[in-house]
Design a protein around this nucleic acid. Structure first.
Lengths: 212, 212
DNA sequence: CGCGGTGTTGACGCCGCTCAAAGTATGTGG
DNA sequence: CCACATACTTTGAGCGGCGTCAACACCGCG
């Protein structure tokens, strides 16, 4: 369950449920996700789980380790993941444009987290799920992984529940309501959003506040 | 309502409800809070409000502006605030120990936000309010502003509600339950916590996960 | 073919919300 | 120092969105 399944000259591979980082352990390094999805989460003693970050292709996992912090939450692969370990000095090192991009992405992470505070604190189930699917699509699109109005969506309903702070049962009912209203098409791990502006509206998101 | 009420050679002053930053506007600069409390929030179109960050004495407002982002949410004073504007180069400038402290505080902000994602997504009213009061006390203590087991607590119940994602009415009832169980004493803007470990337990917080 | 993980459906219960009103500080001006 | 306004806190009654529990269906995979 620990240690990568393979490591070529440049790539690290992880399979679903395998850890990229464990709580309070020194991380092997900062990864750049090349393929696949991963997440960070916290488990409460009675089994409640909240996913606190999602890593998609192109994301760094995790930029804040460059600030000298250790991971306080585990990071685990949701699908098969291919990742590249960054050289130690990428954050503080010599190439200005790489640094710039790196810190800018850290800013995006902070802003996304802030948006999720609003959603988890104040929004209904319908708004939460809408926010999530919208964010997934826009991040995938910005990573060049959307095809027209659709993109891959490997999450199970239970994982959606742990992201949105709902139960799997209620996620199921909410998705059905969304499908029957034509807000999304979601089947066999593919997501299609017929009308982005309408979905933004349903999610109670302003015009620009998803950071992809 | 805008512009500081006074600015001496070194200090900026703000009164309650006055903005330290407005949405999408270039901030006047990064402040270090010397005295008083401020917060960042988002308002939804139907009036729901979620407070997404709290700034206490010693905090920077806001470190992520150094990453090249503009404020995407307003920052407003909750009490009278005295603050110092940082020189432009504090983050990227020459004194290594100041830089170190600055980036370390940014890491703390990210971690606190992550902890709040768990609380807002998965915890009960009792756990939420406990988490908040515990965090306030520990941050005030780390700032040298706690006296024994007590510290100042200027928040109204409505502000507590907007921090915890509850309604003011339910915050009131939750506080009464906590008082009657002896978990906290809270009156006339002062907070006393008789037993920190017990309160941590009630808040479903592990041993170390509040970043003060 | 069988099995574990996932998705779906129904009945029912509860935590926290809504609405409404009364009580209590805090402060301001006369 | 009092009169009054305004904000905040407290209390009650009723309701509803989402959780809980349980069963069943589906599907990919060994």
């Amino acid at each position: 369950m620990s240690g990568q399944i393979a490591r070529s000259e440049q790539y690290s591979y992880f399979r679903p449920h395998q850890f990229l980082a464990r709580e309070d352990e020194e991380p092997a390094g900062i990864y750049k996700i090349d393929e696949g999805w991963a997440c960070r989460y916290r488990l409460l003693s009675d089994g409640r789980r909240q996913i606190t970050a999602l890593y998609l292709p192109g994301d760094y996992c995790e930029p804040q380790w460059a600030l000298g912090k250790r991971p306080s939450q585990p990071v685990v692969a949701l699908t098969i993941v291919r990742a590249t370990r960054l050289p130690e000095n990428t954050a503080w090192g010599f190439q200005p444009e790489a640094q710039q991009a790196f810190w800018s992405k850290l800013g995006d992470v902070i802003e996304r987290q802030t948006n999720w505070l609003v959603t988890l604190g104040r929004k209904t189930a319908l708004e939460r799920v809408s926010h999530l699917l919208l964010e997934l699509f826009e991040r995938m699109r910005n990573a060049g992984l959307a095809y027209g109005q659709q993109c891959a969506m490997p999450l199970t309903q239970m994982e959606i529940a742990d992201l949105t702070g709902l139960t799997p049962v209620h996620v199921n009912r909410t998705l059905q309501a969304m499908r029957s209203r034509g807000l999304v098409e979601l089947q066999s791990k593919w997501l299609r959003i017929p009308d982005l502006p309408t979905l933004r509206d349903v999610a109670s998101l302003g015009s620009g506040e998803i950071v992809g």
